[in-house]
């Protein structure tokens, strides 16, 4: 077969597969988007209609005109950003130690870091709640931020350790030869070339903090401290749901994350990578 023709056929096959995949991934979200512009009752119309028969911005105005709900968003941004930055900071230090040093109990520490995530959060809820009260962190930002850091650190450490392991050791040796400390080697050499890894771990961390519900609810109590997932859950009443507002709230919630993703993706897709550095 002609090389050009084969390429074209391959291209068509990939495009078809991409479209099928996009339907799988995107259709439910499209339905959510359409529902957010519907009246509650139209969401349940049969046959279902993708184009809202009575399009309305009611659900969106209900959110924007309610300062309490806007505050949910601000809280979520602030908490998630803080968690991301602090997790990366702490995880980089730990990953550096695990990647570049040999020391007693390293393996034990690894096992602990991996398996602490294995306890069902729901059983931790009550002792954890007591602990946070004891530490005076109940209904505060640090309470939630530190909690989420504990949830995200294991993953961040494991991934960053793996990432550092791929970076050639000669890099930090060079710093040492120049008289620099391991601290300098970490921050001057390793971290700057690890930006793709940091971004990838950071996005994941952000997501966890952004979407967490159970602890956010338990560790806060005033409306000024609540986050978006609680806001969504508050729309699920005892007797009825505000379907369209729930949909619009999650659409609004996902737009900034999507922008963040779009902005940062160049770093870890086709950007500077460990492989490139090595060559």
């Amino acid at each position: 077969m002609d090389r050009k023709l084969r390429r074209l056929l391959g291209k068509i096959a990939v495009l078809i597969a991409l479209v099928v995949g996009a339907l799988f991934a995107g259709l439910p979200v499209l339905w959510m988007l359409s529902s957010s512009f519907k009246l509650n009752t139209d969401i349940f119309a049969y046959p279902p209609q993708l184009i809202p028969p009575n399009p309305t911005l009611e659900a969106y105005t209900a959110i924007f005109t309610d300062p309490v709900k806007v505050r949910f968003f601000l809280n979520s941004y602030f908490i998630s950003l803080s968690v991301t930055v602090l997790t990366l900071l702490v995880a980089v230090l730990a990953a550096y130690a695990l990647s570049r040093f040999e020391f007693p109990f390293k393996r034990v520490l690894n096992v602990v870091i991996i398996s602490v995530q294995a306890v069902p959060p729901i059983t931790l809820l009550i002792p954890y709640f007591g602990l946070i009260m004891f530490l005076g962190l109940y209904n505060t930002y640090p309470g939630l931020i530190l909690t989420y850091m504990v949830f995200t650190l294991p993953y961040a450490i494991i991934m960053m350790t793996g990432y550092f392991n791929t970076l050639p050791r000669e890099l930090d040796e060079a710093v040492k030869v120049d008289g620099g400390s391991s601290w300098t080697a970490l921050w001057r050499v390793l971290v700057p070339i690890s930006v793709p890894g940091l971004v990838s771990v950071g996005i994941y961390t952000f997501m966890i903090a952004w979407n967490e519900y159970l602890f956010a609810l338990t560790l806060t109590k005033t409306p000024e401290m609540r986050t978006v997932p609680i806001g969504i859950q508050l729309l699920m009443g005892q007797h009825s749901y505000e379907w369209n507002q729930m949909m619009s709230m999650s659409i609004l919630g996902c737009i900034p994350i999507l922008l963040l993703f779009l902005f940062f993706q160049r770093y870890f897709i086709g950007g500077m990578t460990a492989g490139a550095v090595k060559n």
């Binding site: 950003l81 803080s82 930055v85 505060t140 640090p142």
Partner: peptide
């Protein structure tokens, strides 16, 4: 950013 985070958390206890 970290400093700002800490500062903000310090002054906005519930």
């Amino acid at each position: 950013m970290a400093a700002a985070a800490l500062a903000m958390t310090g002054c906005t206890g519930g």
